[in-house]
Design a protein around this nucleic acid. Structure first.
Length: 560
RNA sequence: GCCCUUAUAGCUUAAUGGAUAGAGUACUUGGCUUCGAACCAAGUGAUGGGGGUUCGAUUCCCUCUAAGGGCACCA
């Protein structure tokens, strides 16, 4: 990528002035007049070397080689060195963007396990699960785009109190007639709610539910097990379909029924070394590591969430090792737990340090409306997609349901991914996620616009530039070219920081630049040389938008 | 009480220690006989309070305030 080439030039120039710095700050100035790249390296070292920042900046600048890459070098007031890329390299770089050879695709070859989604059986996934699906899938696509081998892993809670609560109510209310899959999972959700209420308010029910829970763990009661397995399969099948509709296909699916035994055994064999007994439970003494003590096996002998996570990691080791990194995404409310869990993992698997990472995404708050979290009503993931689709159909008078669904996916995914994933986010349903300017539909619309122009262009087949454009680029054209070449480094940053929002922000800026260009300049009616250039720009903007959106899990449409 | 996280225009938010804090939305105004107006342009408006480090702080450190999360057998 261009950034690396510029960095090398700069590195060489700095070395000639005797400064050693492996990580030179190389920025894209906000103000386009300040060039394509700038560095404040002179400001950093001026004092140490006893010269003025301007003087040092000038020394460094004098050593930077001008040529096909850098056309202009400026030294500005406090001591900035601003570098302007040549028009030639900008146009040349644009030519490398081709739809059949993904631009900026990396050559990394790490093996990365990404665990996300994690819906529990016997109760419907809610908006938090939806966020996890969207975020995890985007991360997976970004890593894969860089050339890594990505293993998408799902982890589902199919055993435990929530299952027992559901089955308690389900047993006394078996379904009548034939139910569709949708109705079946809806019934499970209702049963879960009924069971939860009973567990809170009814002592007898509580005892019964606890008994069911115990029976599940010990696989007692054949009838119960049969019902459990059947209902469980409904959830699994339903989630599978929903995941596919979101563009997610898992490589690996883990269930708590698989992991709890592994976790329990791991813990039990390490009592006295890593874990210790306390008040009939088995705990991890977190205080020894500046953390909290957590229970891994409770006094009934059942593994807790922590032990199950331990078992999950061991299962991943068993099935997928060797891998370079195993990422677990969860809501940030579990941040403290994972510090403890991974400290325990560190003790149990000292041979592979640093191969596990927890990403705790922010909580989603709903600000207003009837689906407010204040009312205690939980927003279902499927429900949200359906509601958004309906909203788009009516707001844009759209008849085509599958198109409306595509736009709804774009709207939801983009609004989830456009901001910092680690901060809490506010999701305002009433404000309509579709009509905001900084939105998925805006990007889709911009893409559709590029495709519409290309379709109409007579030279549709021959839109790649063969000759270097002789004229001078106008401000809007140059602004777009400046953005296009940054795509690879944007992806790299997004991957390093686990933040798809970096890509979302970039795509929005690119779309804005293109729309401004479109507004001010004609493409199809320009003279031949300009038309060729502008069509080339239009096609490349289309390619980058499509590729970038795909990294966010969003599929573009050709018309809308 | 202890631990973690967060605080930027009315609202939702961006900014590897750098240049005039960037957008969207809302509000005011202008632009379709012209490639798709789900668009574009102009205007109004922001770093919670107080210290510190630094040539330079939204960013790092301390403190206060406020909000969210966690703190032994739920996940």
């Amino acid at each position: 990528m261009i950034r690396d080439k510029v960095a090398v030039l700069l590195q060489q120039a700095i070395a000639k002035t005797g400064i050693e710095d492996s990580a030179i700050a190389l920025a894209h100035p906000a103000n386009p007049e300040h060039g394509d790249f700038s560095t404040s390296i002179a400001l950093k070292y001026a004092k140490k070397r006893g010269v003025s920042p301007m003087e040092l900046a000038q020394q460094i600048a004098n050593h930077i080689e001008k040529g096909t890459l850098i056309s202009t070098i400026e030294v500005i007031k406090p001591g900035f060195i601003n570098l302007h890329l040549s028009q030639e390299i900008l146009i040349n770089e644009m030519k490398h963007i081709q739809s059949d050879s993904p631009y900026g695709q990396g050559k990394q070859d790490k093996k990365v396990v990404v665990e996300y989604g994690q819906p529990n059986t016997h109760k419907l996934p809610h908006i938090g699960h939806l966020f996890s699906y969207v975020y995890g899938e985007s991360l997976s696509r970004i890593f894969a785009y860089q050339g890594n081998t990505v293993i998408r892993a799902n982890y589902q809670g199919d055993i435990g109190l929530h299952v027992a609560k559901c089955l308690y109510a389900y047993i006394s209310r078996k379904p009548e007639g034939t139910l569709s899959l949708h109705e079946k999972v809806q019934l499970l959700q209702t049963c879960y709610q009924t069971g939860s209420e009973a567990y809170e308010n009814d002592v007898d029910a509580r005892e019964e539910i606890d008994a069911i829970n115990k029976a599940l763990y010990h696989e007692q009661d054949a009838d119960l097990i049969k019902i459990w397995k059947e209902t469980r399969s409904w959830s699994v099948q339903y989630y599978d379909e929903f995941q596919k509709s979101l563009g997610i296909v898992y490589d690996r699916s883990y269930f708590e029924t698989d992991t709890w035994k592994i976790g329990k055994e791991l813990v039990e064999t390490s009592i006295g070394t890593v874990f210790e007994r306390s008040q009939n439970a088995v705990i991890f003494r977190g205080e020894d590591h500046g953390l909290h003590t957590r229970v891994f096996i409770n006094k009934h002998g059942n593994p807790t969430y922590e032990a199950k996570e331990l078992g999950l990691y061991a299962a991943k080791m068993r099935d997928l090792a060797p891998f370079d990194l195993s990422i677990t995404t969860t809501a940030s409310e579990q941040n403290e737990y994972f510090k403890v869990i991974f400290k325990a993992v560190e003790q149990l698997f000292p041979q592979n340090p640093g191969t596990y990472k927890h990403l705790g995404y922010g909580m989603i708050n709903l600000t207003s409306g009837k689906m407010s979290s204040r009312t205690g009503e939980i927003v279902g993931a499927v429900q949200l997609v359906e509601m958004t689709t309906e909203l788009i159909k009516s707001a844009f008078d759209m008849q085509d349901s599958s198109l409306a669904l595509s736009v709804a996916h774009a709207a939801i995914k983009y609004s989830f991914l456009k901001s910092d994933p680690f901060k809490n986010m506010t999701f305002d349903l009433e404000k309509s996620i579709a009509r905001d300017g900084d939105s998925g539909p805006y990007l889709l619309y911009t893409y559709v616009r590029t495709q519409s122009i290309l379709r109409q262009a007579a030279a549709n087949e021959q839109i790649s530039l063969n000759d270097v454009y002789g004229g001078v680029l106008n401000t809007e054209e140059r602004a777009i070219l400046q953005l296009l070449h940054q795509f690879p480094e944007v992806i790299e940053t997004a991957a390093q920081q686990y933040m798809p929002s970096v890509i979302a922000t970039y795509l929005f800026t690119l779309a804005q630049s293109y729309n401004l260009f479109y507004q001010k300049h004609q493409v199809l009616k320009a003279d031949d040389a300009q038309k060729a250039l502008r069509l080339a720009i239009t096609s490349r903007v289309g390619i980058i938008l499509k590729s970038g959106l795909r990294l966010l899990g969003i599929e573009t449409v050709e018309k809308m």
